[in-house]
Design a protein around this nucleic acid. Structure first.
Lengths: 192, 192
DNA sequence: GGATTTACAGACGGAGCTGTCTATAGGATC
DNA sequence: GATCCTATAGACAGCTCCGTCTGTAAATCC
């Protein structure tokens, strides 16, 4: 395995890092391949060697988003303590944190899916991501003792999606707080 | 006022109708002006006479979406009876209906905002739309006797946004039902 | 030290995009 | 009937985008 010979990591990493930043800010369709190349300081041939189609780069971007966001969700839940009941509410702190972050621009998956043809690979990857997250929430709800874990999980992920999606407009952290309070109410009602 | 001389309404109406259909299906950025022209059977000069910039057409599209969606929300609320408390939940029937509709593709505002530059007219129009809807819901919540009408309105519109936004992926009507049940729980909790 | 791999640099074609322009035809109005 | 107004039809310029291609430099491997 050769050591990286470029200052800021391997070419592939630089491409991905730049694509992540640009795609999230302007949407994949709003960023040309030439821009990614220019800003990552990479040759065109190099980019097309690692990502033969632009779609491949978009999918790699979504994978990175998935890791980041899902990781933040689990970390927030973990930080809420050992009680699954508290973790179900605590995961919304990830939303609070996301809204506060500079350059926050909503849900990368929804934004990307909105500009991608239905039935394409981007949609499939997005559905996959949402499914994995919901399965995790469902398991938490089951551990918490919910009578209908699937329902509660759907309710909570719906809240998450709502909070994320409306972030396209204004990263108002109050929205995340509202979502958190809603989550508390729904969890309490489901576990009463 | 001259009578329409074209079979399917005035040229302006045909343009708007076609743009509505195409913009909603593929996103404004995914539809070229030439396509709108071809499918609406209109001359290029005519389109640019009515809508000097493509952005003008996009904004007119959003206005039409606003009328349609807000109208559907109010109609659903009205159909739920005279009690504001029931209307707050009943408005979610508009979401149920939207999810069932063929070609459902999520929230036109969020989808469009996601691909538009932040701070631009599209964002402003979207914020305006969301503000008007939320003000209406707030008034309903006040009439229903909520202690914190603004909070309840934010919670409910957050649910609406979540249900709409996730519709980009799958128009699963179950999501709308889940949103409706969440709304019932939140309304009950707020009015207890 | 030669061969191979990897990356840089950038031209290029074909397509699509927005927006302007000219030329023309058909009703409406005076 | 002459004159508008509006609409059609389509060429056109200028730009951007995606993806391919050629050529070159540097680092690694045998």
């Amino acid at each position: 395995m050769p050591a990286p010979r470029t200052p800021a990591g391997s070419a592939r990493d630089r491409i991905l890092h730049t694509a992540f930043r640009l795609f999230y800010a302007h949407g994949p369709r709003g960023v040309g391949v030439d821009t990614v190349i220019a800003e990552s300081g990479v040759a065109k041939a190099t980019l097309y060697k690692h990502f033969p189609r632009k779609d491949d780069l978009v999918l790699a971007y979504l994978d990175r988003v998935d890791q980041t966001w899902f990781g933040a969700l689990r970390a927030a839940a973990r930080d809420a303590g050992d009680e699954p009941r508290d973790q179900l509410v605590g995961m919304f702190d990830a939303l609070v944190g996301a809204c506060r972050r500079d350059g926050y621009h909503g849900c990368a998956f929804i934004n990307t899916a909105a500009e991608s043809p239905a039935g394409g690979p981007v949609h499939a990857r997005t559905v996959e991501h949402k499914t994995v997250v919901r399965a995790w929430v469902t398991e938490l709800a089951r551990q918490a003792g919910a009578a209908e874990p699937e329902l509660l999980a759907r309710q909570l992920t719906l809240l998450l999606d709502g909070g994320l999606a409306s972030g396209v407009l204004d990263g108002d952290p109050v929205i995340a707080e509202v979502a958190r309070r809603s989550a508390r109410t729904l969890v309490d009602a489901a576990l009463r």
